[in-house]
């Protein structure tokens, strides 16, 4: 009887101890924010978890603003954001004794493309806005032939849809006549078929489909020169439809332990290869 008790107590003790050890080894990391970046961050997290068993990273979307708010409230370790932190948010963070630290982890550029037969050579940001909101609906208003413009867009579920709406359309709504395509490949196919179509696609795709479509250089404003989107012009910021993708961390703990390791991984050669695989531009 006594023997049995001992065994039970012993087993109990062992399990308590091992549970304690497990808890110490188990590491959780939460990343919250930008919907655009969800796929990229998830790809990083998956590879990182595979290489570092015992570490668990949970990635959720909700938008850049949600992510930064969560960082300030302390409900996430890292905030993913596809825009710079606003001064207002920095003030709010200071009030809560948080000093957000920005790490630029990738760049994102969106190319505007038309059919190779389209004579239009360049477009300005304001012309793009007018085309995509429907204010201009004929190519002759922007230097082309007298033909109706067919506007192609991604589906509203796409992060690029929102990005384009925010930065090019200045937060105005797309024209109702915009055809919403289920995938980037469908946009490329439609542009290749329709002589009067215009659409936007990720840089990676634009490179791949060079022989089917014509990528249009974009002018920041009416006085500047038109810039062709490429890895280089996105990197040096001269191409206007581009942005940085950021991870924000709290300064106090960001340079310790797992958070630093994860950020280093994102910036490493392997991490940046994932950036390219996801159709974004590397930072270095």
């Amino acid at each position: 009887m006594k023997k049995i008790m001992t065994i039970i107590i012993g087993a109990g003790l062992i399990s308590v101890v091992t549970a304690g050890l497990n808890a110490q080894n188990q590491k959780y990391l939460t990343i919250k924010g930008s919907d655009t970046m969800v796929h990229l961050v998830s790809a990083w997290a998956e590879t990182y978890m595979k290489e570092n068993p015992g570490i668990e990273i949970s990635v959720t979307g909700g938008g850049s603003g949600t992510g930064i708010a969560a960082l300030i409230n302390g409900t996430t370790d890292i905030a993913a954001s596809s825009r710079d932190i606003k001064p207002k948010e920095v003030d709010l963070a200071k009030e809560n004794n948080v000093m957000p630290l920005e790490t630029k982890v990738a760049l994102d550029g969106i190319a505007v493309a038309v059919n190779p037969a389209n004579p239009v050579k360049e477009l300005s940001m304001s012309q793009l806005k007018k085309i995509f909101t429907g204010e201009v609906d004929n190519w002759n208003q922007v230097g082309g032939n007298d033909e109706k413009i067919i506007v192609l867009s991604r589906e509203s579920s796409s992060g690029t849809y929102v990005f384009f709406m925010e930065h090019v359309l200045d937060k105005h709504d797309y024209t109702k006549n915009a055809r919403l395509m289920p995938a980037t490949s469908a946009i490329v196919q439609a542009i290749a078929e329709d002589k009067t179509a215009i659409g936007y696609i990720g840089l990676g795709y634009a490179e791949e489909s060079k022989n089917k479509i014509k990528v249009i250089p974009v002018k920041k404003d009416d006085n500047s020169t038109a810039v062709y989107p490429s890895e280089e012009t996105v990197k040096n910021g001269s191409y206007p439809i581009s942005r940085g993708l950021f991870l924000y961390t709290k300064t106090a703990i960001s340079y310790s332990g797992i958070i630093r390791e994860f950020l280093n991984f994102c910036l490493s050669e392997e991490g940046q290869k994932i950036v390219t695989d996801n159709g974004y531009v590397t930072v270095n």
Binding site: E147, D194, A197
Partner: peptide, 15 residues
């Protein structure tokens, strides 16, 4: 089909 319909009916787009 979309390109065929586009050229047959002389439409701006086959979609």
């Amino acid at each position: 089909l979309a390109p065929v319909i586009k050229s047959t009916f002389n439409l701006p787009s086959g979609l």
